[in-house]
């Protein structure tokens, strides 16, 4: 386990609540990004991120340390988001903030608007993937996790992750092509 995480974990178990706050600060943005990609809008992602850390706060004393803390947190996040998504039959509602992606500042307003539109289409395409497939795409493409870690988080084999990633990327290529989105 990461030495810093181990120190914080030991401090928390020793009764230092501030050690948990340090872990939250360290991982909150990664967790939020996964939730945002999984759920599609800021409000749901913010609530999910809160719930992830509350669950972690309750369960951390029983954390056995066999995996990295971030792997454990991602697993909580993915399970929570899959659970939330399963309660809704519709596609995730994408909020207008999807268009607030960080774009390089440029003088061309039209270019910026086109970039936002493409971002919206890409988000919609990712949101349209089956939930587990989407989770794997998010963990790999946006969090750069190795296949082995993703397999651990998703509770499947590495082979399944590889095959799923391949299928997902082909599907996304087709959807983006249908929407007229070309390579950057």
């Amino acid at each position: 386990m990461d030495a810093e995480d181990l120190r914080l974990l030991e401090a928390f178990r020793g009764g230092e609540e501030s050690a948990f706050a340090a872990l939250v600060i360290k991982y909150r943005e990664s967790i939020y990004r996964v939730a945002r990609h999984m759920l599609g809008n800021h409000e749901d992602a913010a609530d999910a991120t809160q719930d992830v850390f509350i669950r972690a706060y309750r369960a951390l004393p029983r954390f056995d340390g066999r995996s990295q803390i971030y792997t454990w947190l991602y697993r909580i996040t993915v399970n929570l988001c899959l659970d939330l998504r399963s309660r809704l039959t519709r596609l995730p509602l994408l909020d207008d903030e999807e268009s607030m992606r960080d774009l390089p500042a440029g003088p061309m307003i039209e270019e910026e608007a086109a970039g936002r539109e493409i971002g919206r289409i890409v988000s919609r395409a990712v949101a349209g993937l089956p939930p587990r497939q989407r989770a794997m795409v998010v963990l790999r493409l946006y969090q750069d996790l190795p296949y082995q870690e993703i397999a651990r988080i998703m509770g499947c084999s590495e082979g399944t992750v590889k095959a799923t990633m391949f299928a997902a990327l082909r599907k996304l290529r087709r959807v983006l092509a249908e929407q007229g989105v070309r390579a950057p």
């Binding site: 939250v24 903030e97 493409i118 990712v126 493409l141």
Partner: peptide, 26 residues
Amino acid sequence: ELEATAARLRESASFTVPPGFWPAFM
């Protein structure tokens, strides 16, 4: 084609949060 798709997906990956979100979150 797959490389272009992966690049497009990566490019549109970043999000911003509303100002003051993280302090309120904490």
